[in-house]
Design a protein around this nucleic acid. Structure first.
Length: 269
DNA sequence: GCGACAG
DNA sequence: ATCTTGTCGC
């Protein structure tokens, strides 16, 4: 005789309500290790004559980017991709992908539990191989502090890998009273919280959660930058600007493109 | 109660 | 995330 566990069937918003409690605990637990200030050994690239005087290893050079794409036929088939770019040339110097079957659904606010298991092995592999291009900083397609509990995918990956990370969102996650229309209004009103091509995202609580940046002249649609781990917002903005040839910073864009190509090649879809 | 909700 | 063609423009 086996016990039949009664499943929750009244909730239409989630198939697995009992797990979310565990997920929230996990996020709160990991968040205790979160660092939201500059905390790294390298410095930004030299811009002038000081170049000759500096040691190469002390400068930020290897910037990683991660993304996950999905099969159009089978949405549970995912391809995680890690790329590393040379910050100076913005060329891809390392690339790795892995196709896996996912069993965890996407639930807003819990993206990390779906995507981190795909991405972490790619980073671990590089680290155990002591690869010379192991990233000094990681850009993540997903938010960091800009999250319902202040601990999005970028923070999650940062804490688990102990890497400095920056969160990049392509759409605004409505959090702490922030809305797309509100952001658009601020973008148009070239006065208040706006400085040049970016506006600070301050939630109802008064916390600064990130910035919306019009990274390219041609695109009205901003990208949303937030702290991941061990990088201040000001530094995050500086680094994102250094890598934006197009709307998305190159590490994210390249991971995105190559992830999709890899899946297409392997599944002929 | 209803709608909103990163990828 | 993914489904989708052409098209306007530098």
């Amino acid at each position: 005789m086996e016990m039949i566990c009664e499943r929750e069937t009244t909730s239409s918003s989630s198939e697995i309500p009992y797990l979310q409690k565990d997920w929230i605990e996990a996020q709160d637990s990991l968040k205790r290790n979160l660092v939201v200030e500059d905390d790294f050994t390298w410095r930004l690239p030299a811009s002038s004559e000081e170049k000759e005087m500096e040691k190469e290893w002390s400068r930020l050079k290897y910037v990683g980017g991660v993304d996950v794409s999905f099969s159009k036929d089978d949405p549970s088939i995912a391809c995680g991709t890690l790329v590393v770019l040379d910050l100076h040339t913005l060329e891809v110097v390392y690339q790795d992908s892995s196709v896996v079957k996912l069993h965890i659904p996407y639930v807003p606010g819990f993206l990390a539990f779906r995507e981190a298991p795909v991405l972490l092995p790619l980073l671990e592999k590089m680290k155990t191989d002591v690869h010379p291009c192991y990233p000094q900083l990681l850009m993540v397609d997903g938010n960091g502090l800009l999250h319902p509990r202040g601990f999005g995918l970028a923070c999650h990956l940062g804490v688990l890998t102990n890497l400095p990370t920056i969160g990049i969102g392509k759409n605004l996650h409505h959090v702490d009273g922030l809305t797309q229309s509100g952001v658009r209004q601020l973008l148009e009103a070239k006065g208040n919280c706006r400085e040049e091509d970016l506006i600070t995202l301050v939630g109802r609580s008064g916390c600064t959660l990130g910035v919306a940046m019009q990274s390219t002249q041609g695109s009205l649609k901003p990208i949303y930058i937030s702290i991941g781990h061990r990088v201040s917002l000001a530094t995050a903005i500086t680094i994102v600007k250094m890598t934006c040839k197009y709307r998305l910073p190159e590490p994210i864009r390249q991971a995105d493109i190559r992830s999709r190509d890899y899946l297409r090649k392997r599944l002929l879809s």
